[in-house]
Amino acid sequence: MAYVMPINRTPQKQYAIGIDPDVKKNGVALYCRIAKRILELSLKDFDATIAYISGFDLATVTVYVDAGWRNRNPQYHDVKIPDRLKEHPEAAARYLLGVSNRIANDVGRNAATGQLICEQLRKAGYEVVEVKPTSAKWKPADMKQFTGIDTKNQEKIDAARLCFGR
């Protein structure tokens, strides 16, 4: 039997922080790799998010940011036309255009917030991993099953999913 060289891996940092960026409030989750559980789950504005992470030693934390801007077509969203407008094609078209534009604007602003968070943290020396979102999202029941935490806030759930088990 041949000798197999051990793989030299850099040890994982003690904490993983997941951030789901949003213009108003970012979902922020703190996962402890030693305890293997979420220690904190909260909503923070931009400044509070940066200040919170700045309280951690660079050597102890890896930050995972939901990078929606990495999706091929970030402007695709399924907009449902209300029943009352289905019989009025012109009104339905105006509604569809207005909602689509608002969604595209919100997606763009959230992407810019996420990019700024990544930039600020990298400038400060933190290890930042941009995570391309997957189509599978955790629902509140999934969050409860995997982490034992009961919350219905999707920003918190998405932040927890980013760092849980990493």
Rank of each mutant, 00 (worst) to 15 (best):
M5L: 13
P6V: 03
N8P: 00
R9M: 02
T10C: 00
P11I: 09
K13P: 00
A16V: 11
A16H: 11
I17D: 00
I17V: 02
I17A: 01
I17G: 01
G18K: 09
I19F: 07
I19A: 10
D20C: 02
D22E: 09
K25L: 06
G27W: 10
L30W: 01
L30K: 03
C32L: 01
R33V: 05
R33F: 06
I34T: 13
K36W: 02
R37G: 08
I38H: 13
E40F: 02
S42H: 09
L43W: 12
L43C: 12
D45L: 06
D45S: 14
F46L: 07
D47P: 00
T49K: 10
A51M: 04
A51N: 12
Y52E: 04
S54N: 04
G55W: 15
G55F: 15
G55N: 10
G55V: 11
F56E: 02
L58M: 05
L58W: 08
L58S: 06
T60C: 03
T62M: 02
T62A: 01
V65S: 04
D66M: 02
D66S: 05
G68W: 09
R70P: 00
R70G: 00
R72M: 01
N73M: 03
N73F: 12
N73G: 00
P74D: 05
H77D: 03
H77M: 06
H77Q: 07
H77I: 05
H77E: 06
D78L: 04
P82R: 11
P82H: 12
P82L: 09
D83T: 15
E87W: 04
H88R: 11
H88K: 12
A93M: 12
A93F: 15
R94M: 04
L96R: 04
V99Y: 11
A104S: 11
A104Q: 05
N105K: 12
N105E: 15
N105L: 03
D106I: 07
G108S: 09
A111V: 06
A112R: 07
T113F: 08
G114S: 10
L116W: 15
L116R: 15
Q120L: 09
Q120M: 12
L121P: 00
L121W: 07
R122E: 14
R122Q: 14
K123I: 04
A124F: 10
G125S: 07
G125I: 11
Y126E: 02
V128K: 06
V128T: 12
V129K: 05
E130M: 02
S135N: 09
K137T: 14
K137A: 14
K137Q: 14
A141Y: 12
D142Q: 08
M143I: 06
K144A: 15
K144V: 08
F146G: 00
T147N: 06
I149D: 03
D150L: 04
D150F: 08
Q154F: 10
Q154H: 14
E155G: 08
I157V: 13
A160R: 06
R161M: 13
R161I: 05
L162Y: 14
F164S: 02
G165E: 03
G165I: 01
R166K: 13
